[in-house]
């Protein structure tokens, strides 16, 4: 269900350092994981987020900081034309992007 010309902006922290910003076409009812999948498939194959995901709020693997708040990526509904800053939670050592030790 693509809504014409609307986007969401994802600002992803890379390797615990700089941020990369991606523009993802907005779709009604999308979540952080759908946006990350779009980026991985279409914009940047090197982004890292967990391979094992239940996508339904049960496994907890997609816990991340979204606009400063710890949340499950699967549980965050995205709004059109908004910016989402995504990074790892806490002080865990970052292996790559959203992957921690």
């Amino acid at each position: 269900m693509k809504s014409n010309n609307k986007n969401v902006n994802i600002k992803l922290r890379r390797h615990g350092q700089t941020y990369d910003e991606f523009e993802v076409p907005f779709e009604e009812g999308m979540n952080i994981l759908s946006a990350l999948q779009y980026i991985y498939e279409n914009l940047d194959r090197t982004i890292a987020y967990p391979v094992c995901l239940c996508r339904m709020g049960k496994c907890g693997a997609c816990i991340m900081q979204v606009n400063g708040k710890s949340q499950l990526g699967c549980a965050v509904r995205l709004a059109a034309d908004k910016l989402y800053v995504i990074e790892t939670i806490g002080n865990k050592e970052v292996i790559k992007d959203l992957i921690t030790k």
Binding site: M1, E27, E28, G29, M30, N31, L33, S34, Q37, R55, M56, C74, R77
Partner: peptide, 9 residues
């Protein structure tokens, strides 16, 4: 099968 966040739910 839609929306993308719930595919397969």
């Amino acid at each position: 099968c839609s929306p993308s966040s719930l595919i397969g739910n």
